[in-house]
Write a protein that binds this DNA or RNA. Sequence first.
DNA 1: GGTTATTAGTGGTTGAAAGTGGTTGAAAAC
DNA 2: GTTTTCAACCACTTTCAACCACTAATAACC
Lengths: 139, 139
Amino acid sequence: MLIGEYSYNIDPKGRMNFPSKIRDYLSEIFILTKGLDNCLFVFSMEEWNKLAEDIKRLPRSKAVAMQRFYFGSAQEIIPDKQGRILIPINLREYANIEKEVVVVGALNRAEIWNTDRWKKVCDDLSAESIAETMEELGF
Amino acid sequence: MLIGEYSYNIDPKGRMNFPSKIRDYLSEIFILTKGLDNCLFVFSMEEWNKLAEDIKRLPRSKAVAMQRFYFGSAQEIIPDKQGRILIPINLREYANIEKEVVVVGALNRAEIWNTDRWKKVCDDLSAESIAETMEELGF
DNA sequence: GGTTATTAGTGGTTGAAAGTGGTTGAAAAC
DNA sequence: GTTTTCAACCACTTTCAACCACTAATAACC
């Protein structure tokens, strides 16, 4: 299960560290794509293949958009010896990533966020709605 | 069942003791996350997996906030040989934890509080509302 | 009640791993 | 043929988890 929050800076050459705990969970090689809310998604090859299968099964009308969004932006990523990755420019632009970056675990995938954006998203989480949902779940 | 209240100081290295009674109840390894009202939650792996399953099954509208809140903040914790744990900075910031800390049992989870905050929460507990609820329960 | 044994809690040290910066050489672009 | 780019290294720093040693508190026993 992918969990946790990890902060890094992108160095002048565009390299960013990638958390070793998440690296261990994914395999040697993994997939980076555009994500929702202008973040980037990181999938293990396994999860990626599942997603690809699911997209294939969609009715053509819906599949096209999904294909363009995910397949069009997807990149295979292999970290270097020190565990760093290089994020392609188009994805960096999409996610507004320049310097400060947060990697966040999200169960079956990881997400990469511009730090400020992530903070904002966290601040906007409504405590009441979470408390409500917790109650619904019986926790 | 998790009960009791335990006070500790965080040492300069960010380590804090964790009550042995609660440690015994949880297993060797457990999960620390953001909690409600700016405290931190401690779940046994069992409870955590239940929560994760429940979150997975939620409709997407509710799931997103829950995922970001819980999975994003979650950390696996293994106490050291002396029973201490290290609280990640982001969680320390979230819960306003610097020095004095209280660990509180709360049935199926434990909570970690900044001591002052906890005192305030206790003071704010309305005796009347508790008496009322007791009556409802027939106690 | 006093003594001893055991467990809980605290402080400090150290070594491995994680993270960061820079260099080089091959391949691609011009 | 020259320049540029970028991946693969190499070297250094920082961080943190694993120990070790000690003190305080509690329980057990005589």
